[in-house]
Every structure is written in C-alpha cells, then in structure tokens.
C-alpha cells in the first residue's frame, strides 16, 4: 500500500525484516538449551532454523540490490484510496467484533458486524442493510446451534 517506489525497495524492506527476525530468534534460541547432536535440547531446532533464516534473508537482501526491478513488479493494482479505507474499516470491525462477542453474545454482536460490513463495501440503503443483517445473524445462529457449534455466551443470552 505504501507508495509505489521502485519494485526492489519492497523486497529490500521485507528481506531486512526477515533478517531481523532471524537474528533476534537466533539470540533468543541461544537462551534455551541448544544441546548437542547426541542430546538435542529445546533450543536445537529453532537455533538452526534461525541461522538458516538469517542466511536466506541475507541472500534475498543482496539480490534485491542486484536484481532491483527484474523481479516483483510490486503488487498488482496498488489499491486506490477507497480500497485501503475499506480494508481498514473491515479490519476494525472484525477486531471490534472479536471483543464484542464475549460481552454481547453472538446474536447482537453479529448483527452489528453484518451491519457495518454490508455498508462498508456496497453502500446499501439502511433498511436493506438492517434487514439483511438481522436475517443473516439469525440464520447463522440457527445453523451453528443445529451443528452444536460453540458460541460465546453474552449478557443477552446467546
């Protein structure tokens, strides 16, 4: 989403990030017992993985400087402004829903989530969105109950 920049630049950032992850993990794994071949400890597998990850990310980093532009024509159609906004709204709604589930219970929380999501993308008229949300949350509830799938309890019952 960030600027279009030169294609190689994305790769450089990602490779740098992976290298950081690799090095930090290697450090962290040293803190666990690495052990030896005959008596491998809990740190054994992660440590060598972290080392491998660091090596591969260095290779990626080096390549991103050499091959800049050859590979990775950045993402397809870097979203326009509204696309980015929609994603942010959707994610916010989902995170909110997650926490609301435990408090409000399935029916109320789901109704609200559906209402927001229906309106995020297709800006449908309110009555249609409300009716749709009500219908979907009730139908989904019935279906999940039928299959005995666990749903969080909330203040207003289910």
């Amino acid at each position: 989403m960030r600027g279009r920049g030169r294609p190689g630049q994305h790769d450089r950032w990602v490779a740098g990030f992976l290298l950081l992850v690799g090095l930090l993990s290697a450090f962290e794994a040293r803190g666990l017992t690495v052990g030896e071949l005959g008596r491998p400890g809990p740190g054994f597998f992660p440590f060598y993985l972290a080392v491998a990850l660091s090596i591969v990310s260095v290779a990626l980093l080096v390549r991103s400087f050499h091959h800049a532009g050859l590979e990775g024509t950045a993402a397809q159609g870097s979203g326009e402004q509204s696309g980015g906004n929609k994603i942010i709204w959707t994610l916010l709604a989902l995170f909110g829903y997650t926490f609301a589930l435990d408090h409000l219970g399935f029916l109320v929380a789901t109704f609200l989530l559906m209402l927001i999501l229906f309106r995020v993308v297709e800006l449908r008229r309110w009555p249609a969105a409300v009716a749709g949300s009500l219908a979907t949350s009730l139908l989904a509830y019935g279906l999940f109950k039928l299959l005995q799938i666990r749903l969080p309890p909330g203040i207003w019952g289910p």
Partner: peptide
C-alpha cells in the same frame, strides 16, 4: 460509520 462504531463502543462498555 462513526455513528455505528460509537454504538458498538457503548454496547461494549455495557457488556
């Protein structure tokens, strides 16, 4: 949208 999210917050606080 802002209105809806405010309602959500309110309900959360109640919960």
């Amino acid at each position: 949208m802002t209105l809806v999210s405010l309602i959500v917050l309110l309900l959360l606080a109640l919960g």
